[in-house]
Simulated assay, not measured.
Amino acid sequence: MVEIIRIDNVDDPRVQVYCRLTEAQLKNRLSPSEGVFIAESPKVIQVALNAGYVPVSLLCEEKHIYGDAKDIIESCAGISVYSGSRDVLARITGYTLTRGVLCAMRRPEPLSLRQACNGASRVCVIDGVVDTTNIGAIFRSAAALGIDAVALTRASCDPLNRRSIRVSMGSVFLVPWAWVDDSVSEMKEIGFKTVAMALSDNSIPLDSAKLESEPKLAIIMGTEGDGLSHNVISSADYVVRIPMSHGVDSLNVAAASAVAFWQLRRNKP
């Protein structure tokens, strides 16, 4: 039997993790090893639980206790489950919950690049992408289209940001990922040929046979505005462009990643 703790006061310190802490504070609360993140909606929370992530507490709208959140609550025995009216929860979180359930979860121990890429043949490298929506969308495409792992430069947005998780529909929990300092040299060190997605004079088309024959590819996606740096482009093994029509010069990084993942996936039917 799970005890439901009713919250009537928006200033209740027991639920401060859902309202008062910034993303940076959630990440490093107390110490980096004790950081947390927030997952939202029963479906996304269930994906995280299935992937082995550890719940800390739940915040659930009253009507969902015996509805959408029933199975999650039962599987999270032993943690605090807080509940309140829709209005109180909206004031706690700062917005009306569309799915009525939030879960604070423990951050896992970070993977090294070698750990994340162990056995991988196709890896996405996110270089300096800071928009949380794009990060979530890239992870969702990576999970759906056969990318084995994701590496992110430290200037990129945290995949466990609340919005990134929501946009990815929990895909950030399905694909192993790690931080890198150098998007080209570190991938080369572990045996990957690097593919810089960029428009340049020496670029080759995405459907080039050279790429399909490579056993291990790291597909490097650049920032939303400026794209990849000159240093990344000049040091990559391949510079690749997506052929365009009607004078369009480029796609949004999330859309471009989906196209690249599909074309460069391994074991095509």
Rank of each mutant, 00 (worst) to 15 (best):
E3Q: 13
E3Y: 13
E3M: 13
I5H: 13
R6P: 06
I7C: 09
D8P: 05
N9C: 13
V10I: 15
D12K: 08
P13V: 12
R14Y: 15
R20L: 06
R20W: 05
Q25W: 10
Q25M: 11
K27H: 14
K27N: 08
N28L: 08
R29K: 10
S31C: 14
S31L: 06
S33I: 03
E34I: 04
G35T: 04
F37D: 04
K43C: 12
Q46L: 12
V47K: 09
N50K: 15
N50L: 14
G52F: 08
C60Y: 00
C60H: 00
C60V: 15
D71M: 12
E74C: 13
C76N: 06
A77V: 09
G78D: 04
I79C: 11
I79A: 10
Y82G: 00
Y82M: 03
R86Y: 02
R86F: 05
V88Q: 10
A90T: 13
T93R: 13
G94Y: 06
Y95K: 11
Y95E: 09
T96E: 13
T96P: 05
L97K: 02
R99F: 13
V101E: 01
C103D: 02
A104C: 11
M105R: 03
R106E: 12
R107V: 02
R107L: 13
P108F: 08
E109C: 08
E109L: 07
P110E: 04
Q115V: 10
G119P: 00
G119M: 06
S121L: 01
R122G: 01
R122D: 04
R122A: 09
V123I: 10
C124N: 06
I126N: 01
I126R: 02
V129E: 00
V130K: 14
N134S: 00
A137Y: 06
F139V: 07
F139R: 07
F139W: 06
I147F: 02
D148T: 05
D148M: 03
A151P: 00
L152N: 05
D158Y: 12
D158W: 07
P159I: 01
L160V: 07
N161H: 15
R162D: 04
S164Q: 06
S171L: 11
V172A: 06
F173H: 04
F173D: 01
V175G: 00
V175T: 09
W177G: 14
V180S: 00
D181R: 11
V184H: 05
E186K: 03
K188S: 09
E189I: 08
E189T: 12
I190Y: 03
G191S: 05
G191I: 04
F192A: 07
K193V: 02
T194I: 07
M197T: 13
N202T: 11
P205Q: 11
S208M: 08
A209Y: 12
K210I: 09
E212V: 05
S213V: 08
K216S: 11
A218R: 09
A218H: 10
I219N: 04
I219V: 14
G225Q: 07
G227K: 00
G227C: 09
L228A: 02
S229L: 11
N231C: 07
N231E: 15
N231W: 08
V232K: 02
I233E: 07
S234N: 14
S234A: 14
S235L: 11
S235M: 03
Y238G: 09
V240I: 01
V240Q: 03
R241S: 15
M244A: 01
S250R: 02
N252L: 09
V253N: 00
V259N: 02
W262V: 03
W262D: 03
Q263S: 06
